[in-house]
Amino acid sequence: MGRGYTIFDTALGRCGIAWSDAGLTGIQLPEAREIETRRRLFRQFPEAREQRPCSNTELAIKGITAMLRGQAVDFSDVALDLTGVTPFNQRVYEAIRAIPRGETRSADELAAELHVPGALNSIAQALTKNAWVLIVPCHRVREVGNGLDSSSPNSGIISKRRLLSLEGARPHAGLTLFDAFLAADRRQAS
């Protein structure tokens, strides 16, 4: 079959997905226009040709469309093509896939779970290289300052906050400067 891609409809717009014989190679959530979604997918996977999805890809598409309607989805049976992904990034992605729907972890918590304190920069780099948005739900990882209004890699126009709200999560808001002073005053008063 080689390398393929397809564009498909979801409740939030037209998404793209690419695959190889080994598994999914990437997902692109909707951009403002379908042509932009196609361009971004083609830039990442220029060797892929538009074709009918295989069964693994069909399973992923079914899950993605359900997830973007706010339904709970289990992607554990979806095979990913991890060719070229470093062992460290594979560990990060595995840990992220284990974060339950509707929950978040800070990058610090993820580093502690992986037993690599101080590896925040490496974790951040792994997040930016995540080609499997939703299946490797990097939107569940809060960055420094929480970054919930930023876009996830390959998430097109959909913010992390939007993805979390679809999961029913209550994202942790970052402390404002006022909140930090208020908390410090309360600690001093007690």
Rank of each mutant, 00 (worst) to 15 (best):
I61P: 08
P87W: 08
H139M: 06
A111I: 07
D108Y: 06
I61D: 07
H139K: 02
C138R: 02
Q90D: 04
S122K: 08
F75H: 08
Y93T: 06
P100R: 04
C138D: 14
L110D: 00
E113T: 05
A66E: 15
Y93H: 08
A119S: 11
A79Q: 10
A124S: 15
A107P: 01
A98K: 15
L82S: 04
S106H: 05
K129A: 12
A111H: 08
N121L: 15
T65M: 13
E109K: 03
A66C: 12
L114M: 02
S159H: 01
L59R: 14
P137N: 00
N154H: 00
A60G: 14
D108H: 10
A66W: 11
G102F: 05
R105P: 03
C54I: 11
E109M: 04
L110T: 01
V133S: 05
R105N: 03
L80M: 08
I135Q: 04
P87T: 13
S152W: 02
S159N: 01
L148I: 12
N56S: 03
L59H: 14
T65G: 13
D74C: 11
P137K: 03
I157G: 03
W132Q: 07
V92M: 06
Q90F: 08
T86P: 08
E94H: 10
V136W: 00
M67G: 13
T86Q: 13
A126N: 09
P153D: 02
I61V: 14
R140L: 00
G84F: 05
L120M: 06
D149S: 09
A131K: 11
S150W: 05
V116T: 11
F75I: 07
A60P: 10
